[in-house]
Amino acid sequence: MSNMINSLSNMRLLDDLARKETFIHRIHPLIKLLTTVVYLTVVVSFERYEIIGLLPFIFYPILIFAFAELPVAPILKMILLIEPFIIGIGILNPLFDHSKVLFGGIAISKGWVTFLSILIKCSLTVTASILLIATTGMDRFAVALRMLKIPKIFVLQILLTYRYISVLIEEVSRMIRAYSLRAPGQKGLKWSAWGSFAGQILLRTFERAERVYQAMNLRGFTGEYYTGDIAKLSFKDLAYFAAWSLFFIIARIYNIPVLIGSLFTGVI
């Protein structure tokens, strides 16, 4: 029940944020998608013991947060919600890999290094995905998909799913509320009730799909999805993409923190 309300309010928050009008929001959706993909690819391409080299990549989310005027706390909360999941994933590494490694004079188990590396990578990649949608929104994301030659019918279907998630989650929570009022102290649905509970909603979903189809059909839908014009890429968009890509690639090739550190500690 609470996870349902949470997901719904998170989706709605991201939807609201995507309607802001900052310079980041105005960057072409395709460019933002491609920038995100380059970012993810570069971050993920680091080997499993890398920690220090990953740190410069935190610049990207921080700058997006700042320029797009996004509220840090609620988005961080969303990311932290996934974090226990990641910890669960990574914690087995130290369990299985006990070989030691010297790190700044301290011996650490390699498993922990891998764990930390995964944790950082996961935080960065999850943040990047959420920031993409928080500065783009589903409608404009759909534009990017269409520019990538994804069939329009599939794009329409994704948009429909997105649209009806909130309708259906509300419907489901209403039914769960009605159920739990008559079944106090029960955790989750009783197993035997599941089939008819979900089945009822499913049948209503079929009926709704029928009505939605009629509504579409009455307004001339014949299986083809016509959309508005797509905005062209501007020089600004290309510059944005080029600048970030350059930064990502440089940060991938050179270990920037080590370079900075050497300057200060005078080693080299």
């Binding site: 939605v212 307004r219 016509y226 508005g228």
Partner: peptide, 27 residues
């Protein structure tokens, strides 16, 4: 032009504008 009883069935796009534009675009 038919207006359905449940507006949620009729407003199937993600914004009001896209929805109102759906019909004209189909023509």
């Amino acid at each position: 032009g038919m207006v359905f009883q449940d507006p949620d069935d009729q407003l199937f796009m993600t914004t009001v504008y896209e929805d109102v534009a759906f019909g004209p675009r189909n023509y």
